[in-house]
Computed example of a mutant assay.
Amino acid sequence: MQATSPFRYSDIEVDAVYRAIRERRDIRHFRPEPLDPEVLKRLLHAAHLAPSVGFMQPWRFIRITDRSLRARLHSLVDTERQRTAHALGERRDEFMRLKVEGILDCGEILVASLMDGRERHIFGRRTLPEMDLASVACAIQNLWLAARAEGIGMGWVSLFDPAELGRLLLLPPGAKPVAILCLGHVDGFYEKPMLEQEKWAERQPLEEMLFENRWAAAPLR
Protein backbone atom coordinates (compact mmCIF):
# COMPACT_ATOMS: atom_id res chain seq x y z
CA MET A 1 0.00 0.00 0.00
CA GLN A 2 1.40 3.38 -0.99
CA ALA A 3 2.14 5.71 1.90
CA THR A 4 0.10 8.88 2.28
CA SER A 5 2.00 12.12 2.58
CA PRO A 6 1.99 13.50 6.14
CA PHE A 7 1.42 16.94 4.59
CA ARG A 8 -1.79 15.93 2.82
CA TYR A 9 -4.96 17.89 3.57
CA SER A 10 -8.04 16.13 4.86
CA ASP A 11 -10.23 14.34 2.33
CA ILE A 12 -12.84 17.10 2.52
CA GLU A 13 -10.23 19.80 1.86
CA VAL A 14 -8.65 17.86 -1.00
CA ASP A 15 -12.06 17.31 -2.58
CA ALA A 16 -12.79 21.04 -2.33
CA VAL A 17 -9.57 21.94 -4.16
CA TYR A 18 -10.28 19.53 -7.00
CA ARG A 19 -13.91 20.62 -7.14
CA ALA A 20 -12.94 24.26 -7.61
CA ILE A 21 -10.56 23.27 -10.40
CA ARG A 22 -13.17 21.06 -12.07
CA GLU A 23 -16.05 23.56 -11.81
CA ARG A 24 -14.18 26.77 -12.65
CA ARG A 25 -15.80 28.45 -15.64
CA ASP A 26 -15.10 31.44 -17.89
CA ILE A 27 -18.30 33.34 -17.11
CA ARG A 28 -20.05 35.77 -19.47
CA HIS A 29 -23.44 36.14 -17.78
CA PHE A 30 -23.64 38.15 -14.55
CA ARG A 31 -26.01 39.84 -12.16
CA PRO A 32 -25.20 43.53 -11.61
CA GLU A 33 -25.02 43.79 -7.81
CA PRO A 34 -21.58 44.68 -6.40
CA LEU A 35 -19.33 42.27 -4.55
CA ASP A 36 -18.92 42.44 -0.81
CA PRO A 37 -15.68 44.44 -0.25
CA GLU A 38 -14.34 41.73 2.07
CA VAL A 39 -14.88 39.07 -0.59
CA LEU A 40 -13.07 41.19 -3.18
CA LYS A 41 -10.22 41.71 -0.74
CA ARG A 42 -9.93 37.95 -0.21
CA LEU A 43 -9.90 37.30 -3.95
CA LEU A 44 -7.16 39.86 -4.56
CA HIS A 45 -5.13 38.44 -1.68
CA ALA A 46 -5.44 34.98 -3.25
CA ALA A 47 -4.11 36.40 -6.52
CA HIS A 48 -1.22 38.03 -4.68
CA LEU A 49 -0.21 34.67 -3.17
CA ALA A 50 0.55 33.29 -6.63
CA PRO A 51 3.98 31.91 -7.50
CA SER A 52 6.23 34.05 -9.65
CA VAL A 53 9.53 33.37 -11.39
CA GLY A 54 12.40 34.85 -9.38
CA PHE A 55 9.73 36.09 -6.93
CA MET A 56 9.36 39.13 -9.17
CA GLN A 57 5.59 39.47 -8.55
CA PRO A 58 4.96 41.21 -11.89
CA TRP A 59 1.18 41.51 -11.54
CA ARG A 60 -0.57 44.84 -11.16
CA PHE A 61 -4.35 45.09 -10.83
CA ILE A 62 -6.38 48.18 -11.73
CA ARG A 63 -9.89 48.26 -10.29
CA ILE A 64 -12.32 50.04 -12.62
CA THR A 65 -14.96 51.93 -10.62
CA ASP A 66 -15.73 54.74 -13.10
CA ARG A 67 -18.79 53.74 -15.16
CA SER A 68 -17.77 55.94 -18.09
CA LEU A 69 -14.34 54.26 -18.12
CA ARG A 70 -16.04 50.86 -18.05
CA ALA A 71 -18.04 51.91 -21.12
CA ARG A 72 -14.81 52.85 -22.91
CA LEU A 73 -13.34 49.45 -22.04
CA HIS A 74 -16.41 47.84 -23.56
CA SER A 75 -15.98 49.91 -26.72
CA LEU A 76 -12.34 48.79 -27.05
CA VAL A 77 -13.39 45.16 -26.66
CA ASP A 78 -16.20 45.49 -29.19
CA THR A 79 -13.79 46.98 -31.74
CA GLU A 80 -11.46 44.01 -31.34
CA ARG A 81 -14.44 41.65 -31.45
CA GLN A 82 -15.28 42.97 -34.92
CA ARG A 83 -11.65 42.64 -36.04
CA THR A 84 -11.45 39.10 -34.71
CA ALA A 85 -14.66 38.16 -36.49
CA HIS A 86 -13.22 39.43 -39.78
CA ALA A 87 -10.00 37.46 -39.22
CA LEU A 88 -11.94 34.24 -38.57
CA GLY A 89 -13.23 34.13 -42.12
CA GLU A 90 -15.84 31.41 -42.56
CA ARG A 91 -16.45 31.17 -38.80
CA ARG A 92 -17.27 34.89 -38.58
CA ASP A 93 -21.03 34.55 -38.13
CA GLU A 94 -20.63 31.69 -35.67
CA PHE A 95 -18.24 33.81 -33.61
CA MET A 96 -20.50 36.87 -33.66
CA ARG A 97 -23.30 34.82 -32.11
CA LEU A 98 -21.13 34.09 -29.05
CA LYS A 99 -21.30 36.23 -25.93
CA VAL A 100 -17.63 37.01 -25.39
CA GLU A 101 -17.71 39.34 -22.37
CA GLY A 102 -19.83 40.72 -19.53
CA ILE A 103 -18.16 44.09 -19.02
CA LEU A 104 -21.36 46.12 -18.77
CA ASP A 105 -23.16 43.52 -16.65
CA CYS A 106 -20.79 42.37 -13.90
CA GLY A 107 -20.31 43.81 -10.41
CA GLU A 108 -16.55 44.39 -10.61
CA ILE A 109 -13.93 44.96 -13.29
CA LEU A 110 -10.21 44.42 -12.78
CA VAL A 111 -7.51 44.92 -15.39
CA ALA A 112 -4.50 42.65 -14.82
CA SER A 113 -1.26 44.06 -16.17
CA LEU A 114 2.44 43.32 -16.35
CA MET A 115 4.44 45.87 -14.37
CA ASP A 116 7.01 48.17 -15.90
CA GLY A 117 10.75 47.70 -15.32
CA ARG A 118 10.64 43.93 -15.85
CA GLU A 119 13.96 43.92 -17.72
CA ARG A 120 15.85 44.22 -14.44
CA HIS A 121 14.48 40.85 -13.31
CA ILE A 122 16.84 38.28 -14.82
CA PHE A 123 16.42 35.35 -12.41
CA GLY A 124 14.47 32.70 -14.36
CA ARG A 125 13.93 35.02 -17.35
CA ARG A 126 17.30 35.26 -19.05
CA THR A 127 16.35 32.70 -21.68
CA LEU A 128 12.57 32.74 -21.08
CA PRO A 129 11.55 36.38 -20.66
CA GLU A 130 7.89 35.42 -21.13
CA MET A 131 7.92 33.87 -17.65
CA ASP A 132 6.71 37.23 -16.36
CA LEU A 133 3.49 36.67 -18.28
CA ALA A 134 3.29 33.10 -16.95
CA SER A 135 3.53 34.51 -13.43
CA VAL A 136 0.63 36.91 -14.03
CA ALA A 137 -1.39 34.00 -15.42
CA CYS A 138 -0.78 32.13 -12.15
CA ALA A 139 -2.15 35.10 -10.21
CA ILE A 140 -5.22 35.20 -12.44
CA GLN A 141 -5.80 31.47 -11.95
CA ASN A 142 -5.51 31.86 -8.17
CA LEU A 143 -8.14 34.60 -8.36
CA TRP A 144 -10.34 32.44 -10.56
CA LEU A 145 -10.27 29.40 -8.29
CA ALA A 146 -10.86 31.50 -5.18
CA ALA A 147 -13.80 33.19 -6.91
CA ARG A 148 -15.32 29.81 -7.77
CA ALA A 149 -14.95 28.66 -4.18
CA GLU A 150 -16.73 31.87 -3.06
CA GLY A 151 -19.53 31.27 -5.59
CA ILE A 152 -18.47 34.30 -7.62
CA GLY A 153 -18.30 34.19 -11.42
CA MET A 154 -15.25 35.41 -13.30
CA GLY A 155 -14.56 35.94 -16.99
CA TRP A 156 -11.20 36.59 -18.65
CA VAL A 157 -11.50 39.00 -21.59
CA SER A 158 -8.53 39.25 -23.97
CA LEU A 159 -10.24 40.91 -26.93
CA PHE A 160 -8.52 44.30 -26.89
CA ASP A 161 -5.53 46.14 -28.30
CA PRO A 162 -2.98 46.26 -25.43
CA ALA A 163 -1.48 49.57 -26.59
CA GLU A 164 -4.89 51.25 -26.76
CA LEU A 165 -5.92 49.92 -23.36
CA GLY A 166 -2.58 50.95 -21.89
CA ARG A 167 -3.07 54.51 -23.11
CA LEU A 168 -6.61 54.59 -21.75
CA LEU A 169 -5.46 53.51 -18.28
CA LEU A 170 -2.29 55.65 -18.31
CA LEU A 171 0.05 52.69 -17.93
CA PRO A 172 3.73 53.69 -17.67
CA PRO A 173 6.14 52.77 -20.50
CA GLY A 174 7.00 49.07 -20.36
CA ALA A 175 3.82 48.03 -18.53
CA LYS A 176 1.31 45.97 -20.50
CA PRO A 177 -2.34 45.00 -19.86
CA VAL A 178 -2.98 41.29 -20.35
CA ALA A 179 -6.55 40.70 -19.14
CA ILE A 180 -9.83 42.42 -18.40
CA LEU A 181 -11.39 40.42 -15.58
CA CYS A 182 -15.16 40.50 -15.05
CA LEU A 183 -16.27 39.46 -11.56
CA GLY A 184 -19.75 39.19 -10.17
CA HIS A 185 -22.69 37.28 -8.82
CA VAL A 186 -24.32 34.77 -11.17
CA ASP A 187 -27.55 32.84 -11.47
CA GLY A 188 -25.54 29.68 -12.05
CA PHE A 189 -22.34 28.22 -13.42
CA TYR A 190 -22.21 26.60 -16.85
CA GLU A 191 -22.30 22.80 -16.76
CA LYS A 192 -19.45 22.78 -19.29
CA PRO A 193 -17.12 25.51 -20.53
CA MET A 194 -19.28 27.90 -22.51
CA LEU A 195 -17.37 27.46 -25.76
CA GLU A 196 -17.81 23.70 -25.41
CA GLN A 197 -21.54 24.15 -24.74
CA GLU A 198 -21.79 26.35 -27.83
CA LYS A 199 -19.89 23.71 -29.84
CA TRP A 200 -17.08 26.12 -30.71
CA ALA A 201 -14.50 23.56 -29.58
CA GLU A 202 -14.19 20.40 -27.49
CA ARG A 203 -11.81 19.55 -24.68
CA GLN A 204 -9.10 17.30 -26.06
CA PRO A 205 -8.19 14.05 -24.31
CA LEU A 206 -5.32 14.33 -21.84
CA GLU A 207 -3.75 11.23 -23.40
CA GLU A 208 -3.12 13.20 -26.60
CA MET A 209 -1.21 15.85 -24.68
CA LEU A 210 0.92 13.69 -22.43
CA PHE A 211 4.24 12.42 -23.77
CA GLU A 212 7.04 10.46 -22.14
CA ASN A 213 10.73 11.20 -22.53
CA ARG A 214 10.35 12.97 -25.88
CA TRP A 215 7.75 14.61 -28.13
CA ALA A 216 5.50 11.78 -29.29
CA ALA A 217 5.98 12.48 -33.00
CA ALA A 218 9.75 12.90 -32.75
CA PRO A 219 11.93 10.13 -34.22
CA LEU A 220 14.32 8.23 -31.99
CA ARG A 221 17.93 9.44 -32.19
Results as ranks from 00 to 15, higher is better:
Q2P: 15
Q2T: 13
S5M: 08
S5V: 10
R8K: 13
Y9M: 15
E13R: 10
Y18H: 07
Y18E: 09
I21M: 15
R22Q: 14
E23G: 06
R24Y: 01
R24D: 13
D26W: 01
I27T: 13
I27G: 00
F30T: 01
F30V: 00
R31H: 07
P32R: 09
P32N: 08
P37D: 05
E38G: 01
V39K: 04
V39C: 01
V39F: 03
A46Q: 04
A46K: 05
H48V: 00
H48P: 05
A50V: 00
S52G: 06
Q57C: 13
W59I: 04
F61M: 11
F61I: 13
F61S: 03
F61Q: 03
R63A: 14
T65D: 06
D66N: 04
D66R: 05
R67F: 07
L69G: 03
L69D: 07
R72G: 02
V77Y: 11
D78A: 04
D78L: 12
T79H: 02
T79D: 01
E80R: 04
R81W: 07
Q82T: 08
T84H: 02
A87T: 13
G89E: 05
G89M: 02
E90V: 02
E90M: 00
R91Q: 07
R91Y: 10
R92Q: 15
D93A: 00
E94P: 00
R97D: 11
V100L: 13
V100K: 15
L104W: 01
C106E: 07
G107K: 08
G107L: 09
I109Q: 02
V111L: 01
V111C: 03
D116K: 04
R118F: 02
R118H: 02
R120F: 05
R120I: 03
R120Y: 04
F123S: 03
G124L: 10
P129D: 06
E130V: 08
M131T: 05
M131F: 12
D132S: 13
L133E: 15
A139S: 15
N142G: 00
W144I: 11
L145E: 15
A147E: 14
R148A: 13
R148P: 15
A149K: 14
E150Y: 00
G151Y: 14
G151T: 09
I152E: 11
G153Y: 09
G153R: 12
W156I: 10
V157T: 01
S158D: 10
L159T: 05
A163C: 10
E164R: 06
G166T: 07
L168F: 01
L169V: 00
L170A: 02
L170R: 12
L170I: 10
P172H: 00
P173L: 07
G174N: 03
G174R: 04
G174L: 10
P177E: 15
I180N: 12
C182F: 01
C182T: 12
L183N: 08
G184R: 04
D187P: 10
F189P: 11
F189V: 05
E191A: 08
K192P: 08
K192Y: 03
K192E: 12
P193S: 06
L195K: 00
Q197H: 02
Q197T: 08
K199C: 03
E202G: 10
Q204E: 12
Q204M: 14
E207F: 13
M209Q: 12
L210W: 07
L210V: 06
E212P: 12
N213T: 12
R214D: 09
W215C: 11
W215A: 11
A218F: 15
P219L: 13
R221F: 00
